[in-house]
Structure formats: structure tokens, C-alpha cells
């Protein structure tokens, strides 16, 4: 569907595991895409933007955007972006656009976890991040699913079948792997081990969130927001509900970047959420 005035604004979130893109016109989200990350962040950005462009007739590629903002860990490697903005700011912007009542965000990505506290106006009050350790990130869950010989989607639902959770005590992902293998060899119920894994990730996120202050409403963004078992474990740990977002929470960084692109290009029209 072509834009009424032919102006498009894009946000591209180059993450460690996936590349995400969101394209806006003057009023709404017109396209989005998520692809697995390639080795070269620039190539990831090109591929995901091309995929998003395919859905819009007349939009050929990156040169057709009125403004493009890059974000994510690979944001500095996107030479064709007009600007790049930290993923923390982009997640905050994306979430505030989707639900201005949200005050706390936990972004669980492929290789890091971030806790973000928002002001009423959506500006960032404080943030904390763990980018040193794989434990508690998407990479950790990916590793765990491999031990269970499952894909991530199946693994994320496995813990929902459990009546109890077997605690996985190792803080380090390498040691946790050994612990989980040992538990499986003792023929402990896989669903209960999976529940223990989810609880350990939830606990790490909770500890990080405590640094920035936990205030309702709270939401989860990043790839791990699609992990149902983790969301349940996190709700249990937080003792509060996690607010769902009207837009795919994995796209929040890219959406925030696209909104930033609109602002930088001087667009003043009202943007609405197309549910």
C-alpha cells in the first residue's frame, strides 16, 4: 500500500540474533520484518529492510526512505542510516508510543538484558544492563532448548506443563548446562527442569529490574518476550502482571527507531497504532 505523500520512515534494529525493521508512513506502521542475523551487521540491515520493503509497492530499497534510523548493537555498522540511536532510547520510545502508561521495561534480547524505568512523559529515568554474561539472555535459553532437543518455541511452552519447578542454581550458563544435563540423566521431569530454567532467567531479570526500580505497569520487549514460560515465571517473580503490547514486542527497538526517524524528518502528523 503506497503512502499518501510517498514519504516513508524506517527504523532498523540490528541485534545480535535477529534483525528487525519497521516502516512508517505519515500515519501508521505500514510494514515490518524480522530475520535471523547474518555475520555482517550491514548485510543484516540490508536484508531486513529489503524484506520489509517487499510489502510496499513502489518502495525499492534504503534510498527511498525519507529518513532511516539504525539501532541495536550493530547500529554503528549501518552506513546508509541517516542517524543511529541507542536501543535503550528506541525501546523506551516504542513502548511509550504503544502504551504511555507503562513505567518499566525489561528488554531480554539475544545477548543482553536491560531494565528501563520511564518517566510519565516516556523519557528514561534510569536504566541498567547486563551485557557481560550470557546467563539470563536469549542465547542461554537457546542453549537450553538444544539440550532438550527442542526448538525454542516448543521449549518456551514446556515449563507450562510443570506442576513444580526444579531449581537450576548455577549462575553461569556453562555450569547451568552441566546441571541441566545432570538433572535430565537423573530422569527428573523435563517440564519441571524447564520451569527451573525459566525461573532462573526470571530471577536474573528481576535483580536487574530492582536496580532501576519496579513500578507498574511493566512490559517485556525483545525476542524473549515471545517465550511464554518465561513470561509466566517473570510474572510470578514480580508478583504483577506483564502488560501485553499491541505491536509485536520484538519490534519495539525498530519501532522506536522509526518513530525517531519521523521526528528527525520533521513529520508532525498523528501516528496511530494499526492493531
Amino acid at each position: 500500500m503506497p503512502s499518501s505523500n510517498g514519504r516513508y520512515y524506517a527504523g532498523c534494529d540490528v541485534g545480535s540474533t535477529t534483525g528487525k525493521a519497521v516502516i512508517l508512513d505519515e500515519n501508521k506502521i505500514v510494514s515490518s520484518a524480522i530475520i535471523p542475523a547474518e555475520i555482517d551487521p550491514e548485510q543484516t540491515a540490508r536484508s531486513v529492510l529489503s524484506k520489509a520493503c517487499e510489502k510496499i509497492s513502489g518502495l525499492m530499497g534504503t534510498n527511498d526512505f525519507s529518513y532511516l534510523v539504525g539501532t541495536g548493537y550493530g547500529r554503528n555498522e549501518v552506513p546508509f542510516a541517516n542517524d543511529n540511536v541507542s536501543e535503550i532510547s528506541c525501546h523506551a520510545l516504542g513502548v511509550h508510543f504503544c502504551d504511555p502508561t507503562i513505567k518499566t521495561i525489561v528488554d531480554i534480547g539475544g545477548q543482553d538484558v536491560k531494565g528501563i524505568s520511564l518517566n510519565d512523559d516516556g523519557s528514561i529515568l534510569e536504566f541498567a544492563m547486563n551485557d557481560k554474561c550470557a546467563a539470563g539472555t536469549g542465547r542461554f535459553l537457546e542453549m537450553m532448548s538444544k539440550i532438550f532437543r527442542m526448538d525454542l518455541e516448543a521449549f518456551s511452552s514446556l515449563s507450562l506443563e510443570a506442576k513444580n519447578a526444579i531449581p537450576v542454581t548455577s549462575q553461569c550458563s556453562v555450569f547451568a548446562e552441566t546441571e541441566v544435563i545432570s538433572l535430565l540423566s537423573k530422569r527428573k521431569p523435563p517440564s519441571e527442569i524447564a520451569a527451573g530454567i525459566q525461573a532462573s532467567v526470571a530471577k536474573r531479570s528481576f535483580t536487574l529490574l530492582k536496580r532501576v526500580g519496579i513500578r507498574p505497569k511493566i512490559t517485556v520487549t525483545g525476542g524473549c518476550s515471545k517465550n511464554k514460560g518465561l513470561l509466566v515465571a517473570l510474572q510470578k517473580r514480580l508478583r504483577m502482571d506483564i502488560t501485553p503490547l499491541p505491536v509485536d514486542p520484538q519490534l519495539m527497538g525498530a519501532l522506536g527507531a522509526a518513530i525517531m526517524a519521523r521526528r528527525k524528518a520533521g513529520s508532525i502528523t498523528q501516528l496511530t497504532i494499526n492493531r
Binding site: N82, S86, I88, S89, F127
Partner: peptide
């Protein structure tokens, strides 16, 4: 960048 909303003075930003 995120809290003080400022960019580095010693790095040129890309031209729009």
C-alpha cells in the same frame, strides 16, 4: 545518550 540526551562532540554524526 539515553539519560542526558546528548551525543558525543568528538564524533561526527552522519549527514542526513
Amino acid at each position: 545518550e539515553n539519560i542526558m540526551k546528548t551525543k558525543r562532540l568528538d564524533q561526527k554524526t552522519k549527514a542526513a
